[in-house]
Amino acid sequence: MTSQPSESSPRPTSTGGLRASHDDREAVVEQLRDAAAEGRIDLDELDSRLEQALNSKTHDELAALTADLPRPESAVDLPPLELNGGVHGASRGPERWEVPGHVIARGGLGGVKIDFSRAECRLREVVVEAYGDAAGVTIVIPDGWVAETGGMNPGLGGLKDKTTPDRLPGTPLIRLTGSGGMAGVVVRHPNRWERRKLQG
């Protein structure tokens, strides 16, 4: 005889009914500000919707605030970018490249460098899955971009986050996952030499 679930058992819920996170609310806030800058909503309506967004508890409540606005362009359909350091190393950037929603970097024996300085990113959030392995992974993000490193396992090599926490409106969040491995993972803003090359 099969037992019936008790009334206290959790019931399946739709995605829209899930509780919203701080990042979910912030993404909607940025979309509303962009819409106001484009003249799609006036300032009074912006203030009203911003207040509702900050007080929203679920995805459904947030979705209602942007239902009449164009969806932001995204690169979610791009396949994940995989960089394997192997023996000789691998890199992406600083030349222009389009950022997918998921980047995987394995340092191997040669190391990997990912430079977002000139990248075209139309996403609110990018997951960078980094494994330092024996030679390490270096990630360079522009000023104004922010890295979230709470999902990283530092491993033996550790994680060095040299970025600033001041995020500019409309910039993506780089969410780091993975492991530092033997050589570690570094995330930073461009150094003096890299800045000089960008200006040249």
Rank of each mutant, 00 (worst) to 15 (best):
175 R>V: 14
140 V>W: 00
101 G>M: 04
70 P>T: 05
31 Q>N: 10
87 V>L: 11
43 L>P: 01
128 V>I: 15
138 T>G: 02
59 H>W: 10
17 G>T: 08
98 E>D: 15
149 T>Q: 04
100 P>Y: 03
169 P>Y: 08
126 V>R: 02
44 D>K: 15
69 L>Y: 11
60 D>V: 11
166 D>A: 11
106 R>N: 12
158 G>W: 01
162 K>T: 06
12 P>S: 13
152 M>R: 00
78 L>I: 05
41 I>K: 04
109 L>G: 03
32 L>D: 04
13 T>S: 13
116 F>Y: 06
185 V>C: 01
28 V>W: 01
111 G>M: 05
120 E>I: 15
111 G>Q: 02
58 T>Q: 04
81 L>C: 07
92 R>S: 11
196 R>H: 09
37 A>K: 14
44 D>S: 13
194 E>M: 15
55 N>E: 11
131 Y>F: 13
157 G>M: 04
68 D>R: 15
45 E>Y: 08
31 Q>P: 05
5 P>W: 10
89 G>R: 13
173 L>T: 09
99 V>Y: 01
115 D>C: 06
183 A>L: 05
127 V>L: 12
60 D>A: 13
50 L>S: 04
144 G>A: 11
136 G>D: 04
200 G>F: 04
62 L>D: 00
62 L>K: 02
170 G>F: 07
10 P>E: 06
62 L>P: 00
102 H>Q: 12
